[in-house]
Nucleic acid binder design. Structure first.
Lengths: 114, 114
DNA sequence: GCACGGGTTCGATCATTGTCGAACTGAGTT
DNA sequence: AACTCAGTTCGACAATGATCGAACCCGTGC
């Protein structure tokens, strides 16, 4: 039995970067950038963990990684490793617990899936 | 009797700078600055038009005016002249009509009056 | 009329932050 | 092992945005 598969399976539900949700300003600043807002929109649209590459267009990898970092630091997203692939996931529940209604209204405004 | 009073009374409900609410990014950017957020908090707390001077502390007039401009441009506030005195007012209803729940959640997070 | 008080505008400066390319890491593949 | 692919980190640079002081404007009151 493949030890590789079981090892990666163990990592699957490990939210390595489970930063707590930041201040309201951290969150608002994180969402106030057009590129990050688009990332959030795509994350909300898909509803689950999404590999980094599918979350941006028209910018370099390093720039995208920079924006991921800010979103994670604000607690808006978390990073998960699925099958060796890095994914980002929207921490909708956690954010809504701290700032009820905020993320919902933003996502609605930006056209992300309901 | 006093024509002065009646004349200023006429100006009272003139929202001279009735900018429409901007894009979601305009609004989020406007709210993502600590000083502007504090302005919004005080405006929400008082509930009505407030003279500019009562909306900030620790910064110069010109800087404050700059922040007012951004808030107005985003459609978050409007400028009213009451009795010759410039006041700022929160456009809570207009913003909520366009981005339901957004302003409420921010104000709740920032400790402004319910 | 003139001075005053409260806001705005202007221009310059300074800090923040978004952007990139190149080098590095770590996992999967051949 | 060497190679590839995807993301991150590291400097450095460019653009954006906050800040200030000074000048200006507009009501008010002397």
């Amino acid at each position: 039995m493949n030890t590789l598969a079981s090892r990666s399976a163990e990592r699957d539900h490990l939210a390595e970067d489970a930063h707590p949700v930041g201040t309201i300003q951290d969150v608002l600043s994180a969402l106030s950038d057009p590129i990050r807002l688009e990332m959030v929109r795509r994350l909300a649209h898909e509803g689950g963990p999404v590999p980094c590459g599918r979350l941006y267009s028209g910018i370099g990898k390093s720039t995208a990684s920079h924006h991921f970092k800010i979103l994670r630091a604000a607690g808006v997203t978390s990073r998960r490793t699925i099958d060796g692939q890095v994914h980002q996931q929207l921490e909708a529940g956690t954010v809504d617990a701290r700032y009820p209604g905020l993320l919902d209204s933003v996502i609605r405004a930006v056209g992300g899936a309901a």
